[in-house]
Simulated scan of single mutants.
Amino acid sequence: MPPPPLDAPAIEVRGLRKAFGATPALGGVDLTVAPGTVCGLLGPNGAGKTTMVRILATLSLPDGGTARVAGHDVVGHPARVRGSIALTGQYASVDEVISGRDNLEMFARLYRMRGAAVRRRAEELLERFGLTDAAHRPVRTYSGGMRRRLDLAVGLVVPPVVMFLDEPTTGLDPQSRVGLWESVRELVRAGTTVLLTTQYLEEADQLADRIAVLTDPDGTGGQVVAEGTPFELKSALGGESIDLTVRHAEQLGRAAEILTREGGRAATLADDPRRATLAVGAGGLPGTAVLAAVLGELDNAGIAVEDLALRRPTLDEVFLNLMNRPSRDREMA
């Protein structure tokens, strides 16, 4: 039961502004999200991520600008927007007293399903989210990961065109987080568009087709200061690096000489007396070519290598770089 297809952007935001009294929250946000994709919305606390989600979900009115979700204006046609979306917030919103099955059947009836269709949809979602064995247990006995999966299942009783996931894995253990990631991937494969806010940059790297970084560069409210695929954002930060750890500290000097010669630039020695780093790319030989040459020369020189790896920038580094750059530079990113 996939959602109906869209022939327009799933989310289209232009100049969106919001303030709470004298405190600006959004300072003119522009964002477009293509149908059937995951857009990761990143930013520090207070950047306006949740405020933006609340506006898009028709829970709050903007002070200016426009926003359309599933082709509908959030101010002019809020009921149409609400009929096209689902929202999963930072905390599970299901009823903890009744069972997982009862929660799903209750929401199905609220969506005007009747009879066998209610039970059939509940069974489908319990099986899809791995909750069949716990279907009759009160939700208060569920683990955090199980509650989050049930919360997501409730949002899919009627598959939404757009789903907002506002920090959905907050407080989950790594195994539960990975399980929820796979549930999100299945949701997108079925045709739903997802706007994901998260504090876990690895989560955005794993799930998002595109990422928008929201921050307040000049105290006038949150703005999108960088946008692109995870690969594009990491590539914009800089090239790759080769990290080398030798087994014996007395061999590091010779190893650093090899790194410098093969890479065409000076290697950097780390605080660890057995480690050195070489920046590669940025107009030079590809990192993989330099890595292969370095490995051969180290072997010829009889240098015992404990670890040798080609490392690319992480989203964490991209994020920290954007937060630490002057506002004018961020606006140009």
Rank of each mutant, 00 (worst) to 15 (best):
residue 108 A to I: 07
residue 147 R to M: 04
residue 112 R to A: 13
residue 114 R to L: 09
residue 176 S to C: 06
residue 122 A to H: 10
residue 125 L to I: 12
residue 110 L to E: 13
residue 105 E to M: 14
residue 114 R to G: 10
residue 166 D to W: 02
residue 116 A to P: 12
residue 121 R to C: 07
residue 136 H to M: 12
residue 152 L to C: 07
residue 99 S to V: 07
residue 163 M to A: 14
residue 126 L to S: 09
residue 111 Y to V: 07
residue 124 E to S: 12
residue 154 V to F: 03
residue 99 S to A: 11
residue 140 R to H: 15
residue 138 P to F: 13
residue 116 A to W: 07
residue 150 L to N: 00
residue 127 E to R: 15
residue 122 A to E: 09
residue 133 D to C: 06
residue 141 T to F: 11
residue 157 V to G: 01
residue 157 V to K: 04
residue 159 P to H: 02
residue 147 R to I: 04
residue 150 L to A: 00
residue 127 E to N: 14
residue 154 V to E: 00
residue 144 G to R: 11
residue 118 V to A: 09
residue 112 R to E: 13
residue 100 G to P: 02
residue 174 P to N: 06
residue 149 R to I: 01
residue 120 R to H: 15
residue 106 M to D: 09
residue 104 L to W: 08
residue 133 D to N: 13
residue 172 L to P: 03
residue 174 P to E: 02
residue 116 A to Q: 14
residue 122 A to N: 12
residue 174 P to A: 02
residue 169 T to H: 03
residue 164 F to S: 02
residue 118 V to F: 00
residue 125 L to W: 07
residue 118 V to C: 08
residue 159 P to M: 00
residue 111 Y to H: 15
residue 122 A to I: 10
residue 108 A to F: 06
residue 163 M to H: 06
residue 125 L to N: 10
residue 156 L to H: 05
residue 161 V to Y: 05
residue 108 A to H: 05
residue 163 M to I: 12
residue 131 L to F: 12
residue 130 G to V: 03
residue 150 L to E: 00
residue 107 F to K: 04
residue 131 L to A: 01
residue 140 R to A: 13
residue 173 D to M: 05
residue 165 L to C: 04
residue 143 S to M: 10
residue 111 Y to P: 10
residue 173 D to R: 12
residue 129 F to G: 04
residue 103 N to C: 09
residue 100 G to K: 00
residue 173 D to Y: 02
residue 140 R to I: 08
residue 115 G to M: 11
residue 133 D to F: 08
residue 103 N to E: 07
residue 162 V to G: 03
residue 106 M to C: 11
residue 174 P to S: 08
residue 151 D to M: 04
residue 158 V to R: 13
residue 101 R to D: 06
residue 103 N to G: 05
residue 169 T to S: 08
residue 110 L to A: 15
residue 126 L to E: 11
residue 150 L to P: 02
residue 111 Y to N: 15
residue 143 S to G: 12
residue 106 M to F: 15
residue 112 R to G: 02
residue 173 D to A: 08
residue 152 L to K: 03
residue 154 V to G: 01
residue 148 R to Q: 04
residue 156 L to S: 00
residue 132 T to Q: 14
residue 168 P to D: 01
residue 108 A to D: 07
